[in-house]
Amino acid sequence: MDNITLAQGIVKAAALLGAGMCMGMGALGPGVGEGFVAGKACEGIARSPENASLITRTMLVGQAVSESTGIYSLVIALLLIFST
């Protein structure tokens, strides 16, 4: 697709810029959120070390759930790159 028209180029360029912005901003929330979960888990384990395995399990499940929006962004970014 070396010789596309200007209009086609603008459409694809918008999709690619959108992909970059989508993944960039989409990574903001999960990153902060997962960090918050892990920080609180550190606090909890320090306060009651005998429940360490329970706390770790809760932390990992919570992080997996908050990761989901990051994965949505990745999917949308890949769709914008490869199927527009």
Binding site: M21, M23, G24, M25, G26, A27, L28, G29, P30, G31, V32, G33, E34, G35, F36, A38
Partner: peptide, 9 residues
């Protein structure tokens, strides 16, 4: 933009 969240978290 993608490094803001993980870095702060």
């Amino acid at each position: 933009l993608g490094t803001i969240g993980p870095g702060a978290g």
